[in-house]
């Protein structure tokens, strides 16, 4: 998708959270505007890109999606490498998937860049009648941990755009701020290992402009 477009930045964002919370559908809703009730389980890694305009900048978002089952965490260090943003997803109708957020967070900070932008995402907002995770409870938890927070529905599209765009904006803010450009691996790897060649010059220009 849009690999030949010119862009100013490439941001790698990972989706994490328990199996069945809707990570793959958040990905497909954001990158292809698609939703599938019976989407296949994710085994290994799935990914997709979408290029978005934020202010006057073109940002190519590489969204990575992986299996949520505990067993697969053994192979996720390669998955986190170079990620500058993460959506930690739980299902608002399954409290257990929310309870494991803390574990996922630890996992993330163990493997990813310490400056990574993290958003806690309560998905399946359309299942309001089955809700077991109160919004306030999750919001308090997010505040306490310094995470962004939003509730989404990949099914009816509620807040999906907003979730990704807010994370991308926050990443850009961090990258643009001096504090992060120096010393942060993620900002450096943006043009390094995420694979820019032909477009790298435009990227450079973009960087200077911003």
């Amino acid at each position: 998708m849009g690999s030949d477009d010119s862009y100013n930045f490439v941001f790698k964002v990972v989706l994490i959270g328990e199996s069945g919370v809707g990570k793959s559908n958040l990905l497909s809703r954001f990158t292809k505007n698609e939703f599938m009730h019976d989407s296949r389980t994710t085994i290994g890694v799935e990914f997709s890109t979408r290029t978005v305009q934020l202010d006057h900048l073109t940002i190519k978002a590489q969204i990575w999606d992986t299996a949520g089952l505990e067993r697969y965490r053994a192979i996720t260090s390669a998955y986190y490498r170079g990620a500058v943003g993460a959506l930690l997803v739980y299902d608002i109708s399954k409290h257990l998937t929310y309870e494991s957020a803390e574990r996922w967070l630890k996992e993330l900070y163990d493997h990813a860049d310490p400056h990574i932008v993290v958003m806690l995402v309560g998905n399946k907002k359309d299942l309001e009648t089955l809700r077991t995770v109160p919004t306030e409870e999750a919001k308090d938890f997010a505040d306490k941990k310094g995470l962004m927070f939003i509730e989404t529905s990949a099914l009816d599209s509620t807040n999906v755009e907003a979730a990704f765009n807010e994370v991308l904006t926050a990443i850009h803010k961090k990258v643009a701020s001096k504090e992060v450009t120096r010393g942060s691996i993620s900002a450096v790897t943006l043009s390094g290992s995420l694979g820019l060649t032909r477009e790298s010059q435009e990227e450079q220009k973009g960087c200077c402009k911003s």
Binding site: R40, I43, G44, V45, S193
Partner: peptide, 20 residues
């Protein structure tokens, strides 16, 4: 050259015996 670790592309191939 691109440091592409095998588990990023072969996990699904091998674990599902290419069925997917």
């Amino acid at each position: 050259k691109h440091k592409l670790e095998p588990i990023l592309y072969m996990t699904e191939w091998f674990m599902c015996a290419f069925s997917r």
